[in-house]
């Protein structure tokens, strides 16, 4: 449909594309830039740091932080005295705990544990459920399928209060383990409808004749799922897993209510917010944290992009 227009038209179009790209990526460039700047450079509108500063990343990833909290005088003393290495480390360890290093890695691990387990459970249940309503015939099947779509429309804020009350009534929030479990189940529930929906769509696209042949050969249904359906849908399963993972990784609302009194369980969204309000002059570390939390998700997404955009165009993905 494109006819070659004049030169000015082409330049105009190129300018439009440039504008779209700039609009999309500018905040990322800004975050990267600020994460690498020294504090005296923050107010400088130039995106290229005057001098590169990796301190923010080092602090978050806990690289070389041991020495930082040790006073200079003690360091000098240790260097001059002829203590053994073990004695030296012992003295240094005393200073290590007092330094208030932001526990970014701990939050990272918490987020990773919750998201991975939640997504894994979600995918396992969804494989079973989606196979059931896309392949097997029974009463109530249509109702369940429509119910899944309906549930998918319900926002988190609508469930927050009742789920919180249930968790309190069951005594789950009294212990860290219970709180972790409660949140895990909530992430499972939040991802289950979309996992069911996406996998159901995919299973329907596998030609039934393959399974039929296996059925005639006398293979039992559960073996068909295990040996035929799962291997054939491997890419879709990985896609759904990553998608479920991303939902849990991004979740803030429930975490903020459930984890209020357990800061050792904080997930990354909670942790970054706590960091933002804990100290002054933290832009470099906040931006480094933003980059470090966005990058894994972006890489995962790029890995599954082809599969996911298929699902997206069917209106499958919530956000």
């Amino acid at each position: 449909m494109v006819k070659s227009g004049g030169v000015s038209r082409k330049i105009g179009f190129a300018f439009l594309i440039l504008l779209i790209v700039l609009f999309s990526v500018f905040p990322f460039i800004q975050a990267l830039s600020t994460s690498l700047k020294y504090q005296w450079d923050w107010g400088n509108p130039s995106l290229i740091p005057t001098q590169i500063n990796l301190e923010a990343y080092k602090e978050l990833l806990n690289i070389g932080q041991e020495e930082k909290s040790v006073p200079e005088s003690v360091k000098n003393l240790l260097d001059e005295s002829d203590l053994t290495k073990a004695q030296r480390d012992e003295i240094l360890a005393k200073y290590k705990e007092t330094g208030d290093v932001f526990p970014f890695l701990k939050y990272f691990r918490n987020s990773l544990a919750l998201s991975t387990t939640g997504a894994l459970l979600s995918v396992v249940l969804a494989i079973m459920g989606a196979y059931s309503f896309s392949r097997l015939r029974y009463r109530g099947r249509g109702l369940i399928q429509r119910g899944v779509l309906f549930v998918y429309m319900i926002g988190g804020i609508l469930l927050l209060i009742p789920l919180y009350r249930i968790a309190v009534a069951m005594g789950l929030l009294a212990t860290p383990v219970g709180t972790f479990l409660a949140l895990l189940i909530i992430y499972l529930v939040q991802t289950l409808p979309v996992s069911l929906y996406l996998l159901g769509n995919f299973f329907r696209s596998i030609p039934y004749s393959i399974e039929e042949a296996a059925l005639i050969d006398g293979l039992a249904r559960h073996k068909i799922i295990w040996r035929i359906v799962i291997p054939l849908s491997w890419s879709a399963i990985v896609t759904v897993f990553i998608y479920a993972f991303m939902i849990a990784w991004n979740e803030y609302l429930f975490a903020s209510v459930f984890l209020k009194s357990y800061d050792q369980l904080y997930t990354l969204p909670m942790g970054l917010r706590a960091l933002f309000y804990s100290k002054n002059a933290i832009w470099d570390r906040i931006m480094a944290g933003s980059m470090l939390t966005a990058t894994p998700v972006i890489i995962l997404f790029m890995a599954i992009q082809k599969n996911l955009t298929g699902g997206l165009s069917e209106g499958g993905v919530k956000g």
Binding site: P27, F28, Q30, A31, T34, M246, W249, N250, Y252, L268, P269, L272, R273, F276, I286, M287, G289, S290, M291, T293, A294, V297
Partner: peptide
């Protein structure tokens, strides 16, 4: 993720 882009 939302929480990684809001601060930028």
């Amino acid at each position: 993720p939302v929480f990684s882009v809001v601060y930028a």
